[in-house]
Design a protein around this nucleic acid. Sequence first.
RNA 1: GCUGGAGUAGCCAAGCCUGGUCAAAGGCGACAGACUCAAGAUCUGUUCGUGUAGGCGUUCGCCGGUUCGAAUCCGGUCUCCAGCACCA
Length: 957
Amino acid sequence: MVRGYGEMEDKWQKEWAAKGLDKAEPDGRPKFMIVFAYPGVSGYLHVGHMRGYTYADAIGRYKRMTGHNVLFPVGTHATGNGAVTLAHRIAKNDTGMIEYLKRNGCSDSKLDEIKDPLALVNFFNEVYVNDYWKRFGFLSDWRRFTCTLYPDYAKFMQWQFMKLNDASLLIQKPYFMPACTECGPVAVDPSETDISKGGNAETQEYTLLKFRCNDVFLIAATLRPETVYGQVNFWVNPDVEYAKVRKGNETWIVSQAAAKKLSYQKDDCKIIGTIKGKDMVGWMCEAPMIHRTVPVFPAAFCDPAVGTGLVTSVPSDAPDDWISLQEVKDDPNITKRYNLTKDQIDSAVPISIISMEGYGNFPAKDIIERMNIERSGDEKLIDAKKQVYKDGYHTGKMKDTCGKFAGLRVEDAKEKMKQEMIDSGEAETFHDLSEEVVCRCGCPVMIKRVDDQWFINYADEELTKRTSDHCKTMQIEPPEYKNNIHGVLNWFRERACVRQGNWLGTKFPYDEKWTIEAISDSTLYPIYYTISMYANSKQISPEQMNESFFDHVILGKGKVDEISKKTKISKELLQKIREEVQYWYPLDLNLGGKDHMTVHFPTFLFNHAAILPDDRLPKGIMVNWYITGKKSKISKSKGGAQPIPGAAEKFGVDALRLYYAHVASPFADVEWDEDIVMTYRQRLDRIITMAGELNSLTDAEKVSDIDKWLLSRCATHMSEIHKAMKSYDLRQMASESYFEMFNDMKWYVRRGGADYDTIRDSLKMWISSMSPITPHIAEELWNICNFDGLAAEYVFPETEKGDAGAEFGETLIRDVISDISQIIKVTKMDAKRVIIYTSQEWKKKVMSMALEMASSGKLDIPSLTKACMSDASLREHGKAVPELVKKFVTDMTRTSNDGRFALQKLNETEHLAAAAQFITSEIGIKAEVFSADDKGIYDPQNKSKMAIPGRPAIYIE
RNA sequence: GCUGGAGUAGCCAAGCCUGGUCAAAGGCGACAGACUCAAGAUCUGUUCGUGUAGGCGUUCGCCGGUUCGAAUCCGGUCUCCAGCACCA
């Protein structure tokens, strides 16, 4: 037997390929199409990623064995900036990254080559296919492999967007995105591909509040528009020179930096002059919404780089405002220097506006005291602000001081108040980055308004309804997600579908300056696997794959002759492709990780519903959770990850596959633990040994109870497997096959079973049941047993039902043995002899009468008693009868009667007598079996009368 | 906060929808024994408490309810996890 699995894996993989099991061609069988959400190309993957992929292969293999023609294509998703980032890090010699790549087996010459993003994508495509998926024995149709950067894929993608446009689902409206003032759009993300600083910055939406002051407006930027009812003054930084901006007919005052930012977002904006901050101190201006006149006070915390450099003051809820206001009030020097009047100072009295859990009337004051903050400028104010904002957002409710907004939750009030002020012209929105971002070229990155941004309108009511309705007909696992997905679909709004800048992807068909964004180009793609093969083999070229081509092969539009003329693709080939699309589609199952629940799966469904007819909409979704690592031990970014080929080498592919399938429900995270994988490896070793031993047991014995038992058990397990797999429950399948059936095989041998036919039949069931999850080992065992053909192409026969009587017989024997050992243990006696008395016949008669009444639902004490007493043979047993009747009726009406029905089919005495020798050997004490009806039996304590059917009496001495 | 999910014996993890056969599958670990020159090997038994006859008692986050009967159904409560968008 092979102990190093590598050779064996290789051998069978070659064999499957030689038999063409990996090639999927339409034929007369029912079809089953399964995909996993293709991975993004972002470097080497780790052992955790293989979990979901393995599920897909195992499900596909199972389906094949139930007579389906299975298409399981794979691909990669290289859109976005993942590959660009990685190539860039290699190019600039990022040591951590280089080390990581090398540890995964990347050679120096390769490293040099993959500094180019496209070369990098091609390289990893090979790695994923050869080192991961093929290595794991996947029966995927490799001819159909596709990558989102392939030119033919791009043609498909462009067609998809034309169809979305035809369905009026593409809309254009303004959008705010980060852009370098020189280079244009950039990606702001932690990998900092495009930028040299500020990768963690987020785009924030500020509300600009307009404070009228005679003929100018002081513009404050706030993230908390819901606090306007608490405004009592206004802050300027006296040491900053502000800009006067001509905005339409109005004159705005903002910081000079803000003026520049505004010009990227607002039309008709022009700097017309400057004004010193200190000159504005002491002004009176009218606050928006509350229309109250408030004074302008000086404050150093107003940063010209943040927002507009001007701040509205809500001391009740903003720690900065509270502390600065106290300082203005307490410091006579300030009053004097800026000529502030006593009325102005006295008018600024904090107003309590929000009630929050864990805070009093003035949350800002509370947090300042709690954190021991004593003066403005204290670093702790940053945290204080964050904390009070967060708590306010989650737990806050608007108080009665907030007019018609009283009683609203902060979360809701925020939107409503902002909108009302925008509608009345007292406010506008403004986008800014949360921290400074600098482009690779050294220029600042700002938020720029783009007027012609394209969106897919997932908010469309008709589309949402169609998609949501379709979901009800789908098989979605886990069921909780099936319930939840409607909420997710409703929650979707318009989604930006294209972007500009340094990103890989397909050009937007209506405007080539745009690249189709990464989520949007991975929604309808499973259908492309039915076509990709023809592009890969160069039977069709990307140029030929125009709108009418896809219209025809996917939607059946147009006459084949005309399409053929237009595309220069032969009529026959067009027909073949069209037939293939129709044969394979709809997709039967899309499998993806839990992170896809809120983005990929909904858009996958939306796009199908938007473009394809009812009978081509997907039929199933399955979500899998993750393999996690303690302290991210398996995460590639942290290093220390186990490379997949290394793990395959160390544990064997099948051990890993079994580990994924069985270690937990697919719908739970699992912590990666090599020791646990090793235990699965050991189990497989044991199974191999056991199967080999069974196969060599060829003594033809006469068929006995235990043979019937084993065949019945196997049949029952097989039917459990089929039942479980209706909901793709691989764990249950693994449990039946690798644990339950294994244990039964052991028991069979222990009981002395050795019948050739029984062993052959049960081995066939057992080994075939292992083929989906551990295909290599199943194949090896199949071969050892000399079964016909390959295990992988074996088709499960119609399952026979188990024999409840035969199965119950063994349960009875185990129960008897367990009872005997228990008695011996409890009594601590030095037992020499065990006698087992089976029940008297008359009791069996009462039980069968009772069961008959129970199955027609008419079982009760009086009727059964009456029936028994009218039987002379029972009546003679006197008051033992009603006692037994009472017991039976109570038991039978309150517990399941399956076992009792099974018992009816069994001759208890004969069955136990046949097992007497076995019982003797198990307990190490001579055991004898008698029927309580036998005359002249040894029964010193008169135990035999205690026996009831299914519960023999036991006497030990 | 919103949406969804979870809390089961030393650990992992089934069961819960469809209440009773549930002291609760299976695995791991631990303990004991068998076989061995040896083995991260294999096999057997035990693994909540208690008990000189197969029993009894307590247990499935916590509190309460429905029921002849609840790990399972209902209400409440505490704790933990995930997602919350342009990021793949």
